[in-house]
Amino acid sequence: MNLKDIPFAQRQRLAYIDFVLLFKGHLTRQDLINRFEVGLSAGTRDFNLYKELAPSNIHYDTRLKQYFQTPGFKPLFAHDAKKTLAKLAADISDGFDAIGELSFPVEAPSQLNVPDIFVVARIIQAILNGRAVKVIYTSLSSGSAAREIVPHSIIDNGLRWHVRGFDRKTQTFRDFVLTRLSSVTLLDKAPQPNEEQSEDHQWQRQMPIKLVPHPHNVKHPTAIELDYGMQNGALELNVRAALAGYLLRRWNVDCTENASLRGGEYQLWLENQQSLYGAENLAIAPGYKHQ
Rank of each mutant, 00 (worst) to 15 (best):
K4W: 04
P7A: 12
R11I: 03
V20N: 04
L22M: 14
G25I: 06
T28E: 05
R29D: 12
Q30D: 12
L32M: 08
R35S: 06
E37A: 15
V38C: 01
G43A: 00
G43C: 05
N48E: 10
Y50F: 06
A54I: 07
P71R: 04
A86K: 06
D91S: 15
I99R: 12
L102P: 06
S103N: 10
F104K: 07
Q111P: 00
N113C: 04
N113T: 01
I117G: 03
V119A: 12
A121W: 04
I127E: 11
I127G: 14
G130Q: 08
T138Y: 12
T138L: 11
S139D: 14
S139G: 11
L140A: 15
S142T: 13
A145I: 09
H152E: 09
I154C: 03
R160I: 14
H162F: 12
R168N: 14
K169I: 11
T172M: 14
F173V: 11
F173K: 09
D175F: 06
F176Y: 11
S183L: 14
S183W: 01
L187M: 14
A190N: 12
N194R: 10
R205Y: 00
I209W: 03
V212R: 12
V212T: 09
V212K: 14
V212G: 10
P215N: 05
T222L: 02
I224V: 15
G229R: 11
A234P: 11
L235A: 05
E236I: 11
V239Q: 08
Y246M: 13
Y246E: 03
R249K: 07
D254E: 11
T256S: 15
S260P: 10
L261H: 06
G264E: 12
E265I: 09
N272A: 09
Q273N: 15
Q273T: 13
Q274R: 08
G278K: 02
A279Q: 15
N281C: 11
A285V: 06
A285N: 02
H290N: 10
